[in-house]
Design a protein around this nucleic acid. Sequence first.
RNA 1: GCCCCCAUCGUCUAGUGGCCUAGGACACCGCCCUUUCAAGGCGGCGGCGCGGAUUCGAAUUCCGCUGGGGGCACCA
Length: 488
Amino acid sequence: MQPAEKPIRVRFAPSPTGYLHVGGARTALYNWLFARSRSGSFILRIEDTDTSRSTDEAIVQIISSMEWLGLGWDEGPGRPGAYGPYRQMERAALYRQASGQLLSEGKAYRCYCTEEELDEDRKRARAAGRPIVYCGRCRELSAAGEQAFIAEGREAVIRLRMPETGRTVVRDLIHGDVEFENAQLGDFILVRSNGVPTYNFAVAVDDAAMEITHVVRGDDHLANTPRQLILLAAMGKQAPAYAHLPLILGHDRSPLSKRHGSVSVEEFRARGYVREALINYLALLGWSYDAETTLFSVDELVEKFSLERVGSTAAVFDTEKLLWMNGHYIRVLSAGELEARIEEYIKGTSLEGLPGKDGKPGLAELVPLVQEKMKTLADFLDLTDFFFLPLEFEPEIIEKLRGSVQPAAVLEKAIQVLYELPDFDTGTIEASLRRAAADMDIKVGKFLQPLRIAVSAKMVTPGMFETLAVLGREESLARLKAALVLIQ
RNA sequence: GCCCCCAUCGUCUAGUGGCCUAGGACACCGCCCUUUCAAGGCGGCGGCGCGGAUUCGAAUUCCGCUGGGGGCACCA
């Protein structure tokens, strides 16, 4: 038997420069799923070494989106662990110690090149068709030379001394072995002149220090990986396993961005998407279980997810499919749960606080009428606002009303019939209205349409019989009479 | 410019040399159901980027091309 394997530790490491993007959410989800399915730990690490773009608001946003999605972390902000702190800017001592060691061992060196010099180098390299990497001018600086630069007032960055020959292979769980020419990599910067570590350095130090076993991240980092591998080796650390996920694209196959519409988790939430749909959809964007299954609960995902079945092709984000899936999850929510989601959702909208107030119908009455028609929580507003808000008849809708089959006669008939009903429940209403339509020799659909418009000022509503019942006799009759006046 | 990744219906994908007459899902179209709209049921349309090679046999392997994407920052 093999010795017991080290417990799995994965991390999601966003840089707090904006909202949580669906691409980031998918990366977080895959990490989370992997950790959960292998009883490992999921760590949230904030990579805020870009001090000019990182903000606290972004951290709050990212955390809120992750919590909403249900992607809880075992260690990270608000959940202290043995490997903290979990914000890179709070780990400065660690990086300083690591760079100091590299420097003293001669594995890294100070570079005093100016931006102009570097720009010049790059231009020349490009013109000559050579790879654009640091030329190594400061590699073997003498102590005297260094003093001269310092006297000039130049500030130094710290660069890693990279091998000039050989190849480095990244053993990627998704892409297989990917080889890189070391000479193409260049002596990259570990520490900026202001003392703040760069991404590649901080990542390598932290992945090692936090004992990360698997790095699951976006494809855009694949080309960085050989640098991190060499750096890790220089520090005498063991490298984690890597899995690079293909990117998510927009409809035009360019990387998904704001101009493709909603891209942040927060926006989808605001537009009435439910977490179940977003999770399921994102899980399937790049991963599949078999040839048949499309619907997965979170528990099923945890049970069935594996990195082996993650594909290597970039995927186009399809809002239509997400919308369908959202409708599906809204339909399968229990009525009580959907009420809770709607209650939460309508806060801040025109319907806030209205259901159940002043004799108005409550969510419990309304949900059964609209559940199967809703594709997003936002649809609830369109579907039910006429129960609460004053009717506004657009000129076109009045025309529709006038243009329906014998509108005045139908309205009068309905008023009379509904007025005389012994009970005002759905069944009784349906029976009487169907009889009335038959009496007038009008098809039920045609008969109901003027009532629908009269009562809602809309062409599309929940079922008419249920709607009238929920509205109540008094309100229904008042609206029918008002409509009668309107068309005369 | 140099390095790397990717390539099956419009989209997400199944497929690892014969089970493929290429399967499923969304979208689309038609029919059914029907009280409007949805939902649901049934059916349909639709794809292996191109060219070579290997093989008795290739969506599946190899090479080239083309196309898309990423990296080459004191961004992550």
